[in-house]
Amino acid sequence: MMRDPYTVLGVGRNASQEDIKKAYRKLAKDLHPDRHPGDSSAADRFKEVSAAYNLLGDVDQRARYDRGEIGPDGQERMSRTQYRTYTGPEGGEEGFGGFHGGGARGFDDIFGDIFTSFRGGRQQARGRDRKYTLDVSFLEAARGANRRLTLPGGKTLDVRIPAGLEDGQQIRLKGQGDAPPGGAPGDALIEVSVKPHPLYTRRGNDIHIELPISLTEAVLGAKIKAPTIHGDVTVTVPEGSNTGRTLRLKGKGIVNRKSGQDGDQYVRLKIVLPDGKDPELQQFVKSWSRGEAFDARADLKTD
């Protein structure tokens, strides 16, 4: 018998959809078959967690479960009204009038109708959608990629990650959900979780990076290589550049999925000194007359 999905995910009945999603992500990550090869217990738990999220992660399905219309397995429960239809007004044996004569139909006829009715309903219904999560790298989401998702039970789905996909967005795979007997299958809904990158930060369709430069490059100017999601490019550091100066690289950002145009990349320069003491540099600074008169904090506002 399937357990209560709230218990499976370790959340209360008043949990928000975001809380449910967070609980599922943590459990799915900890229990994923790739992390526990050959562990049937972990695999069973992973299936149970996935099934619980498939129900509670869908707002409509969750509401129906809370109202008692469907069970923890997502299957329809016979309502009191439906039950009374076949058992009579008081729910007693009056509904089975065949046992007392009067020309009523027999036990097999009545229950045959019940099960035929439900079978017919399922045959006409579309299968349930299934929800999964997929972790992808920053560059996979930015540039697009092909990934393979392993489902509970060992089945795999090939997923195309379109360029420019954002964290939390969904990919719909038609016909990869539940397939009821005689009915159209539901879809697989893949929610993408994009991992952060140590260098690149996304803002809209633009990319921002902080690029270290030497004191020499800052003072004298230079042509240096800057990384982008599309590969390295050469940029010009103007003479006298300071930390915080930002260079714009047009069209080196993430593609806009609606317009098809690429965003830009913004390169923020950061002056970095060599590690340790440099006697030559120290001597220069001591002899640099303007350095003593320059107040680097003159524009600092404290109000």
Results as ranks from 00 to 15, higher is better:
residue 226 A to P: 01
residue 215 L to Q: 04
residue 211 L to T: 06
residue 225 K to Y: 11
residue 195 K to A: 14
residue 195 K to S: 14
residue 195 K to D: 15
residue 229 I to N: 00
residue 235 V to F: 08
residue 203 R to V: 03
residue 217 E to F: 05
residue 223 K to V: 14
residue 222 A to P: 04
residue 206 D to P: 01
residue 204 G to F: 00
residue 195 K to T: 14
residue 203 R to A: 03
residue 202 R to G: 11
residue 177 G to D: 10
residue 215 L to E: 09
residue 215 L to P: 02
residue 200 Y to A: 05
residue 233 V to N: 05
residue 238 P to S: 08
residue 211 L to N: 10
residue 175 G to N: 11
residue 218 A to D: 00
residue 201 T to Q: 09
residue 190 I to P: 03
residue 235 V to G: 14
residue 190 I to N: 04
residue 176 Q to Y: 12
residue 209 I to G: 07
residue 241 S to A: 14
residue 187 D to I: 05
residue 199 L to T: 11
residue 214 S to H: 01
residue 206 D to R: 03
residue 237 V to Y: 11
residue 225 K to L: 11
residue 206 D to G: 12
residue 230 H to D: 13
residue 207 I to V: 14
residue 237 V to H: 13
residue 198 P to K: 07
residue 232 D to K: 13
residue 237 V to W: 10
residue 210 E to Q: 07
residue 226 A to L: 04
residue 191 E to C: 08
residue 185 P to K: 00
residue 205 N to E: 04
residue 221 G to D: 08
residue 197 H to C: 04
residue 204 G to H: 01
residue 199 L to K: 12
residue 238 P to V: 06
residue 195 K to P: 10
residue 183 G to Q: 05
residue 201 T to R: 07
residue 195 K to I: 10
residue 184 A to V: 15
residue 194 V to R: 01
residue 237 V to C: 07
residue 230 H to E: 12
residue 188 A to R: 00
residue 170 Q to L: 09
residue 174 K to E: 14
residue 215 L to W: 05
residue 190 I to Q: 05
residue 191 E to M: 13
residue 213 I to C: 15
residue 232 D to S: 10
residue 242 N to W: 14
residue 218 A to T: 08
residue 173 L to W: 01
residue 184 A to G: 09
residue 202 R to V: 10
residue 240 G to N: 06
residue 240 G to V: 01
residue 184 A to C: 09
residue 231 G to W: 06
residue 197 H to T: 02
